[in-house]
Simulated scan of single mutants.
Amino acid sequence: MTSDPVGLFELASANDSTGRPELAEPLYRKALESGLSGYRRRRALIQLASTLRNLGHPEQSVALLTAERERQESDELDDALDAFLALALVDTGHAREAAGLALAALAKHLPRYNRSLAYYATHL
């Protein structure tokens, strides 16, 4: 097996996409541990968190995604991260927090009512 972080990430993604999350999980972890960086690192983290949730470990998913949010390194994946965090939060019994997170992400993309929706989202 390769030790190339990009190769590991791509192999993990392929396994995930073809319905083999149990094979994908260790590959995502190895890719991240092997120094996967930049945009792919963030994608791998989001995909690993989703895989963990699907494998019945939503608490681990919440922990990974929350830690990534706290890094405050913003890019075009911010809303995807929040969406997957919202899913994991629902699975851990935090539906109101999940709804607030999802609505806050959505508010940025609406043609109107952005401020109102963002306000309501923070008060859920």
Rank of each mutant, 00 (worst) to 15 (best):
P111A: 04
K108Q: 12
H94R: 06
R112K: 12
K108A: 10
H123E: 07
A104I: 04
L124G: 12
K108D: 13
S116I: 14
Y120G: 09
T122H: 12
A98L: 00
H123Q: 10
L101K: 02
L103E: 15
A107L: 00
G100Y: 01
A121P: 03
A98C: 02
S116R: 10
E97R: 02
L106R: 10
H109I: 13
L106I: 04
L101T: 03
A99L: 11
A98F: 00
L103R: 13
A99P: 06
A98I: 03
A107T: 00
Y120K: 08
A98E: 01
G100H: 02
T122D: 13
L106Q: 12
A105L: 05
S116L: 15
L101I: 03
A99C: 08
L106V: 07
L117F: 06
G100M: 00
T122W: 08
A121I: 01
Y120E: 08
L117P: 09
Y120C: 09
A102N: 02
T122G: 14
Y113A: 15
Y119E: 14
H109T: 15
A105T: 09
L106M: 09
H109K: 14
L101Y: 05
L103Q: 14
A95G: 02
H123D: 07
L106N: 11
R96K: 12
E97L: 00
L110M: 06
P111F: 05
A118Q: 09
A104M: 08
L106G: 11
A99W: 08
L117A: 11
H123L: 06
A102R: 05
P111T: 04
K108W: 04
N114A: 12
A102V: 00
P111D: 06
Y119I: 13
L117E: 10
A102P: 01
Y120L: 11
H123C: 05
A95I: 01
A121R: 11
A121C: 02
T122P: 05
H123T: 08
H94S: 10
H94M: 01
A102K: 04
A104R: 15
S116Q: 13
R96C: 05
R112E: 14
L124W: 04
A104P: 09
Y119V: 13
L117D: 11
L124K: 06
A107G: 04
R112V: 14
L124E: 07
Y113K: 15
G100K: 01
Y113D: 15
T122C: 10
L101N: 03
H109G: 15
H94Q: 09
A102T: 01
G100R: 01
A99H: 10
L117R: 11
A98M: 03
G100L: 00
L106Y: 09
T122V: 10
A121K: 09
H109V: 13
A95K: 07
A99F: 06
